[in-house]
Amino acid sequence: MSGFSFESVFCGSDAPFRPSMTERPNSPVSKLAKSKAELEMFMRKTPLMVLEEGAKGSFQQTPSWACSEIPNTVGLEFEMTLNLRGKTVKARGNSKKIAKQKAALDYLHHMVNDGKSAEFSIPGETAEEAHANLNTIAERPVEEPKRAAAAVSVKDVDKSIPTAKSFPENVPEKNYVGALQEKCQKHKLEAPAYEDSKIEATSEFMVTCTMGNQQTRGIKPKIKLAKNLAAWLMLKTLEEGVEAVQAFDLTEQFDELEEEEDRATAQKAAFETKDKKSTLIDLLSDKARFADYRMEFVYPSVSTHGVHQVLLNVFISRPVSPDDDLQIGAEHTQTEEIMKATAEKEREQKKNMPDVTQKTFSGHGPSEEAAQQCACKSALIHYYTFDFTN
């Protein structure tokens, strides 16, 4: 029937048989196309992907990993140990990801030597070709994981660096990072370097742009926006001079943030300290803040659920100011104007800082001691957060 078509046999047609243009599955051309497609797909993978796919597809297993940190003269190095089907390999790198890729590559080379290329779908007619294909995918750079911005305390921030938190009203928001890069390339200047960090007190990102000895800084909720602000300030410095950016001074804002940070630290300490009663006594004993104090626990009670409750009264008196000491025994040296000014100042001080003040704090807990500790914690948070007058 090789000379006949379907029509000539079943439909009475004498048209000669014409070979189909579709390639047979096992034809040399089909095998070549399939081999090429498999190679292209393989080249898009990493050694780790090849290892994991082969382990799951051929053996229904998952590679096991162990990590150890090894210090050296350069810095910290990671050693990843891979174990799969009784074979163990180790590799090192400056990150866990790089060390994993190296260990996976080493394992796959061992599999090729053992004649198991097919189990891991490693293309190559010979072992040499399979090794070469593995080395090709290993040569692609491994994308490093994004490094988290380092957290910094406001106390450690250099307040002398010109800093901006927003663009002035007359400045349009555009890609100043690109504009700065273009200017540097055009005038053959040193490329800017950027360093990002995160302010602990506000969780905002702070990016510092450095060119030579000059630095500028941007602060925003996102790193990209902070970087753009820093680049704009540096571009302004290059175009208008250093004096043009000196007005971008956030010293006062940093000082306020530092106070907030101190209060947050103190409040955290109040929660973490075990003996809150002793800590409160130490705090109230500070003569710079309080001339004298008295503490008393009153109205202890136990609820129907067995919860102990108590109130803590704290009486404190204001400290004597340096002006008060100066005035004692010095009335004869004061003029009438000085005495009037002093009296007015004393009235203002007494208005803002009463001689004696009382604060009451409540506490509860499974025992009377726990209830007292709870009340002392509330008092600690109050006196850490507010000054005497509040």
Rank of each mutant, 00 (worst) to 15 (best):
E77A: 12
I70A: 02
V242R: 05
L84P: 00
F205G: 00
A288L: 13
E261M: 06
G93C: 06
M21S: 07
Y194K: 01
P16F: 13
V171N: 06
A127C: 07
E40T: 10
A127W: 09
S197D: 07
A55S: 02
F254K: 00
N213F: 12
T357I: 14
P141N: 04
H187F: 15
D325H: 10
A370R: 04
S8H: 10
A104F: 09
N26F: 07
R147A: 03
I328R: 08
D106Q: 02
Q214G: 09
M111T: 10
Q101K: 02
K186M: 13
T333H: 09
Y383A: 01
A55Y: 03
F315L: 14
I219V: 08
S303G: 15
E77C: 14
V112P: 02
E139K: 05
S203A: 14
N390A: 07
E129Y: 12
I70W: 10
A127L: 08
S317F: 13
M43N: 06
R217A: 04
T357G: 08
C374N: 08
D255N: 14
S64E: 07
W65N: 00
G241M: 05
P71Y: 13
A226N: 01
R318L: 05
H109C: 06
K188G: 01
E261K: 04
K36F: 15
R294Q: 12
E336Y: 05
M111L: 14
A270M: 01
E190F: 11
M111P: 08
A230M: 06
N133A: 11
K351L: 12
M41A: 15
Q334I: 10
N135L: 08
E252T: 00
L284P: 02
M80S: 03
E369N: 10
T88K: 02
A247H: 13
L312C: 09
L105H: 02
Q373P: 08
N26R: 00
S58M: 00
K96F: 14
A118L: 10
